[in-house]
Design a protein around this nucleic acid. Structure first.
Length: 847
RNA sequence: GCCGGGGUGGGGGAACCGGUAGACCCGACUCACUUAAAAUGAGUUGCCCGGAAGGGCGUGCGGGUUCGAGUCCCGCCCCCGGCACCA
């Protein structure tokens, strides 16, 4: 055994210095325009997109993870010959800028600019390969002009409208919120309990696209199941029926929505939502009037959480009115209760306590009758004593001429009957509501609408866009739009008749900005429209979108809606914006979200300073598969150190091999596995290198398992290191070493672009490592020559043997039975069955 | 409650189609180099019994299918994320 003492020794000055190397190459790449792209019809496009950040001031670990993943994908596809669009921009409208302005007296625009400058610096320092020429900033007039244009585009298509409605109000943010932005009754941003307000607001008619948004989820095979499930649930389509109930003593009728019209004979009472317009009218003049009024008033005051939260007890009062069950003709009492929502269905339900748990709870609480109309298989329900409603399928009973019908068939039969007799009709209901886009805040795109006393609601003509945000406005929140306080903004003339008119003073939800930014990136400087159709048709749809799961419903649903509208107008050819979606897991610290207020932030800047961007990138990719949540280790910044050590190891390897592999005559291919001169160790090395290459390629392209791709590259490094260290110099093939090193460096390029480039240049290359083709694994080398075959006796591993790959099954069995250790286990027994898996195992079943 | 994802060494995580459980990295331990330490390199490291050879146990729990189960099936438990009176 020969030993080299200190291994691959290096002089101190040869240490890899990430700070110097990384900044040097960043400057070089920038001046070379390495990452800039144009449409090129001769090459296949690949649009690699990561969700653009809100410019909060600093990159956090979630960004680093998101963008490191995206950068590997972008660089990988570039090396595979694709023309890769990889842009970055800023989701720069939004509340934090205003809050900072209020707290520190700095204008939101200035605050935003400063944050963008810092975060752009941080992104560049990470070496992400963005085409910065395409940077978009959605708070810039060049951008929001087109956001306004798109608002008008929706308006002209009847998809933007104004209505008076009860809306979610966040008292902390002093603005309204869309349903998607209310999480468990609280504001998604500040977590304050949301209250209700009755306001006239602008909405986008996303419900008109509910069916397509739902049905087309099936097309999104490249999306994670959980995201599709979340959207499916959010849209919440239910097929059922509307049934009309006549209100006794009036001409009124009450319509309910139900998915269980097969249970209509069991409807023993009705329940209305407290906001239902009929509630007060029904009670009027009855003994119940005062009680109903009191109840309605009391529930109206409550916020969403207190009103409809999980732990809120059901509560209601009898309205004094009766309806007629259209099937039985019986009078049934009409109640009002907190568990019925005005927003869903018709705001009224038929209560079938025997077959709906909520109705049963309510019926038991108030002593209302229970009637069994569906008989489950094998059990007999007792209406008097049952405490659990039976909501499954069964046989209809107590249901007149429908008795004996299975419930599924009964639904069809009842629906036919209702339709035939004008008592109701088949209907579909959705959870999805229209998207409320008005915001009573300053830092957003002004809604481009003017109100004229003569002409009414008048859109600002497209050629007068953008409607600019006035710079000097008192933005302190006061429950109304800050733009109200800017007379020069508010007072305008009607674009239609020229008379004095008022501008709309609300701004748009910032999710409108992000619903189309991916289109703008295709032609960021387009002057004639939000995007250039030719450029968009080359790049779109996005091939790979990477971002946080928190946008599973919000941003991803809104963007899908926008694309469908644009598609219908013939402006884009595709139906879906994002072909493949990768949602990376959250980075936490001690199980908690990293945040300044918690004081558990691991600052990327510090890591970059200490170990370099490459080490940080590699660390976060190596730690866990991208979809998985992951907790930053207790060692904090220093957790990255092992990756720094690995990069030093790669560098030492390259330095040590350099004189040998760059010597004259080494450029040719190494001797093949069958060449007479090829030493055993050399072939073994090449097998290891090519096998690791094949694994890394597959892990990146097919599985997005960057952690295992990195581990394959580490194994490749170890194989090269051991070859160089342990094989006697005379038997080392410099060409094989060179081949291995060059494969390694090209594979490392997407992960650690700076080190790869520096080492690539050190091997004498003058063209960038990032302009190289991704290496191809040689199938002859990937294929194993010798394999370890496991020998089992009765399913337990008892021995292993090394045989030539492809050894026949009969030979395998013969060889296995010859083994001493195996025969010891077989002594006194007879083999009754033999199972072989070629190249893997032999299992001898003996008794 | 419903939907989605998990539970594997001291830690992060591998095992892709039912076929060598624990790749790779960290930590720990031993050794070399060093006056010493760091760095670097060589090695050991799932648990238990054993001096060793060797044997037994082992992927949340209980069953099952199979020559063979981390992987498939049935029934549970726990953790994370989403939704939550949606009729």
């Amino acid at each position: 055994m020969h030993r080299h003492g200190g291994g691959i020794a290096l002089m101190a000055e040869d240490r890899y210095d990430p700070q110097a190397v990384e900044t040097r190459w960043q400057a070089r790449w920038e001046s070379d325009g390495l990452d800039q792209v144009q449409v090129d019809p001769t090459r296949p496009p690949f649009y690699a997109l990561e969700m653009y950040p809100y410019p909060s001031g600093d990159l956090h670990m979630g960004h680093i993870r998101n963008y490191s993943i995206g950068d590997v994908i972008a660089r990988f596809y570039r090396m595979r010959g694709y023309n890769v669009l990889h842009p970055m921009g800023w989701d720069s409208f939004g509340l934090p800028a205003e809050n900072a302005a209020i707290q520190r007296g700095v204008h939101p625009a200035r605050w935003t600019e400063a944050n963008i400058a810092n975060m752009r610096r941080q992104l560049k320092r990470m070496g992400f390969s963005y085409d910065w020429e395409r940077e978009v900033t959605c708070s810039s007039p060049d951008y929001y002009r087109w956001t306004q244009w798109l608002f008008l585009f929706l308006y002209r298509r009847g998809l933007a409208y104004r209505k008076q409605a009860p809306v979610n109000w966040c008292p902390e943010c002093q603005t309204v919120l869309a349903n998607e932005q209310v999480v468990a009754g609280r504001c998604w941003r500040c977590e304050s309990p949301v209250t209700r307000k009755d306001l006239e607001q602008w909405f986008f008619r996303i419900t008109a696209y509910a069916d397509r948004l739902l049905d087309d989820l099936k097309l999104l095979e490249g999306w994670p199941e959980r995201v599709r499930a979340m959207q499916e649930h959010w849209i919440g389509r239910s097929h059922g029926a509307e049934i009309h109930f006549a209100v006794q003593g009036t001409d009124e009728r009450l319509t309910v929505f139900t998915t269980r019209h097969d249970t209509v004979y069991g409807a023993t009472f009705m329940v209305l939502a407290p906001e239902h317009p009929l509630v007060l009218r029904l009670a009027k003049g009855t003994a119940q009037e005062a009680a109903v009024e009191e109840f309605v008033e009391r529930t109206a005051r409550l916020g969403a959480e207190e009103r409809a939260g999980d732990q809120v007890a059901k509560e209601g009062v009898f309205t004094g009115g009766y309806a007629t069950n259209p099937m039985t003709g019986e009078p049934i009492p009409i109640w009002v209760a907190n568990y019925v929502l005005m927003e869903y269905g018709t705001g009224a339900i038929q209560a079938v306590p025997a077959h709906d748990q909520r109705d049963l709870d309510f019926a038991r609480q108030y002593g209302l009758p229970v009637r069994v109309v569906i008989q489950p298989p094998g059990v007999t329900l007792d209406a008097e004593t049952m405490t659990e409603a039976y909501d499954g399928e069964g046989i209809m009973v107590n249901s007149g001429s429908f008795d004996g019908m299975p419930s599924a068939a009964g639904r069809e039969a009842v629906a036919d009957y209702l339709e035939r007799h004008g008592l109701g009709r088949r209907a579909t209901s959705y959870r999805l509501r229209d998207w409320l886009v008005s915001r009573q805040r300053y830092w957003g795109a002004p809604i481009p609408i003017v109100y004229c006393r003569e002409c009414g609601v008048v859109p600002v003509p497209e050629d007068r866009l953008p409607v600019l945000l006035p710079p000097e406005v008192d933005i302190r929140p006061r429950g109304m739009s800050p733009l109200e306080t800017a007379p020069d903004f508010v007072q305008t003339s009607c674009p239609h008749c020229g008379r004095p008119a008022r501008r709309e003073t609300d701004t748009m939800d910032t999710f409108v900005d992000s619903s189309w930014y991916y289109l703008r990136f295709c032609s960021p400087k387009a002057m004639d429209g939000p995007f250039d159709p030719a450029e968009v048709s080359y790049w779109m749809p996005v091939h790979q979108y990477t971002g946080g799961i928190e946008h599973a419903v919000l941003h991803l649903l809104y963007s899908r809606f926008f694309v469908k509208v644009l598609h219908d107008a013939g402006l884009v050819r595709f139906q879906e914006p994002f072909r493949r979606l990768l949602t990376q897991g959250m980075v936490t610290k001690e199980g908690q979200v990293m945040s300044k207020s918690r004081g558990n932030v691991v600052p990327p800047d510090e890591i970059v300073e200490k170990y370099g961007a490459d080490a940080l990138r590699l660390f976060i990719l190596f730690a866990a598969p991208p979809e998985q949540g992951w907790d930053w280790p207790a060692t904090g910044v220093d957790a990255v150190e092992p990756m720094h050590r690995y990069l030093q190891r790669v560098w030492r390897l390259v330095q040590a091999c350099r004189p040998v592999v760059t010597a004259a005559g080494v450029a040719g291919p190494p001797a093949g596995p069958d060449a007479p001169g090829a030493g055993e160790e050399t072939v073994a090395l090449r097998r290891q290198v090519h096998r690791a290459l094949a694994k890394a390629t597959n892990d990146i392209a097919e599985r997005y398992n960057f952690n295992t791709a990195v581990s394959a590259l580490m194994e490749m490094t170890n194989a090269l290191y051991h070859y160089r260290e342990r094989v006697p110099a005379g038997r080392q093939d410099p060409a094989a070493l060179r081949e291995g090193l060059e494969i390694l460096l090209r594979c490392l390029a997407p992960f650690v672009p700076h080190l790869a480039e520096e080492a690539w240049a050190a091997l004498g290359h003058t063209e960038s490592a990032h302009r190289q083709a991704w290496p191809q694994a040689d199938p002859d080398l990937v294929r194993a020559e010798e394999v370890t075959v496991v020998i089992q006796v009765n399913g337990r591993v008892r021995d292993r043997m090394t045989v030539a790959a492809g050894t026949s099954e009969s030979d395998l069995v013969r060889l296995a039975r010859e083994r001493e250790r195996v025969s010891a286990y077989l002594r006194g027994k007879s083999v009754v069955q033999v199972v072989t898996v070629p190249d893997r195992l032999v299992n001898l079943v003996a008794r």
